[in-house]
Amino acid sequence: MTGETGTESRASDAALVARIIQRDESALAALYDRYSGMLSSVLNRILRDTQAAEEILQDIFYQLWRTAAQFDPSRGSLPGWLLVIARNRAISRLRRHNPASGESLLENTIVLPATLESTIAQQQLIGKVKGALDNLPKEQRAAIELAYFEGLTHSEIAQRTGDPLGTVKTRLRSAVETLKRNFKI
């Protein structure tokens, strides 16, 4: 994003990952500039602790440096991986668990419905996602946020809010259905 040189800002994620495998530190710096803001935002939202968020942020990029060779672009986009890993680690920290399984660069495939390599694309997505959430009924939005940003399951949300489990399930089902329609890009 910002801080990248003109050449770096045009380089694709896959090209930068290939350079990281060749131990090119400037490629890691370029990917950091491109995605650290996006990851910092979600880490801070989940943890509400700047120091913890920054520790995890550094650790994620260091993991990318160490294990870039494991990254297979055919199994998903890099920002998708980074976002899932960031969320898993932050929620694990929040709930004092060990890092969740599924954060390895080799496991679950993630297909983002949009490319995020440019600042414009990221900005457009911010608008789209915020708009979609704003249009959800208040209770549905609250349930989605409890699940995504606090890592709560159906039952835990019901316990937290005092709502019947069936109601929580219906709200979350309706919310993900609506978001699925709205996130088609």
């Binding site: 803001g37 996006m38 998708g80 495939t109 978001l179 699925k180």
Partner: peptide, 25 residues
């Protein structure tokens, strides 16, 4: 599930934007 993982990952963009301190880099 891969597609669903991608859709759900996009919810990250609902978080208020923050920047890490330069010390992290």
């Amino acid at each position: 599930l891969a597609e669903a993982n991608g859709r759900i990952a996009m919810l990250a963009f609902a978080a208020p934007a923050t920047l890490p301190s330069p010390g992290v880099k």
